[in-house]
């Protein structure tokens, strides 16, 4: 009986938490090569890669499009440099793309080993 009560309490909490979570607009994710860094405006310009990967293109292929992302509020990993592959989660705030997290894929892959 005690177990049943405990179980139902836990399940109720689970459902409650699930309901409380607002259905916010999800952040977009972009991955690609960092082609420019503007330290004054705090932005990275990223050449967008697609998700088709193979041995020659382990991070995807270039789509020849670029995106400018502001990193002033973001949690940024190993300091990005031009040429690094970055993966960023961002949200569009007005005309600007504001990053939430920026991962330096190149440098972290090296460190992983």
């Amino acid at each position: 009986m005690v177990k049943t009560n405990l179980l139902s309490t836990v399940l109720t909490i689970t459902i409650a938490v699930a309901l409380v979570i607002p259905a916010a607009v999800a952040a977009e994710v972009v991955q690609g090569k960092c082609v420019a860094i503007d330290e004054k405006k705090k932005t990275y310009t990223i050449e967008i890669y697609d998700t088709t990967k193979d041995k020659e293109h382990p991070y995807g292929r270039s789509t020849n499009k670029t995106i400018v992302i502001n990193y002033s509020k973001a949690l940024v990993g190993k300091d990005p440099e031009v040429g690094d592959i970055l993966r960023a989660a961002y949200k569009a705030e007005g005309p600007e793309n504001v990053a939430i997290r920026v991962m330096n894929v190149t440098k972290q892959d090296i460190m992983r080993k």
């Binding site: 940024v76 990993g77 997290r101 991962m103």
Partner: peptide, 8 residues
Amino acid sequence: LVHVADTR
């Protein structure tokens, strides 16, 4: 280190 889950 910072990780970003690849939601794409």
